[in-house]
């Protein structure tokens, strides 16, 4: 057997093993996520008529011609965009510091930034109401020193934004931090030796190396934000609602499961678009690496 033949056999032989290794999780996703999602999508695309089930786009036509629904969707997109931007802006400096500093403070900062993991959102909602709500702790402290009260973010769009940023900080930070592991100290030092300043370092050395990580972080966060429920429900305004509370109210209160599913599918499609960009960028990175 020639060497080339052996190699070819090797790659051939590895194929089923790869499939086998991913089989269990993929099976779980197919049976418990993709299948129910497909059922939902099918449900929104059909109507039952006396002559049987026929295709219909009515549910979507309603959604996209209903300014109330669209406003809720737009609010969700805005909140998700603002939260993601804030989260990346907050976690990047923290992560850079944690990655490249040798100071003792890193322990404290890391523990602090990860602590929101251990605070369930229901409790956070109430803690924030008591802290930033009207006549909450901040107001108490401000009025104790004779300053005017805070314009409370409670029951405005900023309520859920603050809550969601707080809640998602550890996740974002962990992902960004993991990505920064790819940037070696040596490459930083080398760039510094040729006279690069901090901004240049960030722009030309660090950011290109963690671009895909930032994309992962952003897509993780955005997907979670789109179905957030507790924080927008308790901290947000009555209208516009974010999609999470809106869907829930449509199922439970308005008793319109079809519209609720339509809302879910629309939300899903937007998330899927993000997902697609993410996957494409990963694939490109891989091609670059392998060539």
């Amino acid at each position: 057997m020639s060497r080339a033949e052996a190699t070819r056999q090797d790659t051939k032989g590895r194929r089923p093993i790869g499939l086998l290794l991913v089989a269990v999780p993929v099976f779980l996703v197919l049976s418990l996520i993709v299948w129910p999602v497909a059922l939902s999508v099918f449900d929104t695309l059909t109507v039952e008529t006396p002559s049987g089930v026929t295709l219909s786009l009515d549910a979507y036509r309603f959604f996209f011609s209903d300014s109330f629904s669209l406003r809720n969707l737009w609010m969700t997109v805005q909140v998700a965009a603002i939260c993601t931007a804030l989260l990346l802006a907050i976690s990047l400096p923290i992560a850079l510091y944690l990655r490249f500093s040798t100071s003792r403070l890193t322990g404290y900062i890391q523990a602090l930034a990860l602590f929101p993991l251990f605070v369930p959102s229901i409790l956070l909602a109430y803690a924030l109401i008591r802290t930033l709500g009207p006549n909450g702790t901040v107001d108490i402290l401000l009025s104790a020193v004779g300053l005017p009260k805070l314009a409370s973010p409670y029951l405005t769009i900023w309520g859920p934004i603050i809550g969601l940023v707080w809640d998602n900080l550890p996740l974002t930070l962990l992902i960004v931090l993991a990505g920064l592991g790819n940037v070696s100290r040596a490459s930083i030092d080398a760039a510094r030796d040729v006279g690069a300043n901090r901004v240049q370092l960030l722009r030309y050395i660090i950011l290109p190396r963690i671009r895909s990580t930032l994309l992962v972080a952003a897509s993780f966060v955005i997907l979670g934000l789109f179905s957030a429920f507790t924080l927008p429900y308790l901290l947000g305004p009555a209208v516009p609602e974010m999609m999470g509370p809106f869907m829930r109210r449509t199922i439970i209160d308005v008793d319109d499961p079809l519209q609720a599913r339509t809302q879910a599918v629309v939300t899903f499609l937007i998330c899927a678009a993000f997902a697609y960009f993410y996957v494409r960028s990963i694939a490109r990175t891989r091609r670059e690496q392998s060539s």
Binding site: I129, P134, N135, Y154, L155, L234, G236
Partner: peptide
């Protein structure tokens, strides 16, 4: 608010309790 409606029976009670 105006137009800020709370998210629960209990939150209304809390707003009253806090003197808001």
């Amino acid at each position: 608010g105006p137009g800020s409606y709370s998210g629960d029976n209990m939150q209304s009670i809390q707003l009253l309790a806090q003197g808001v």
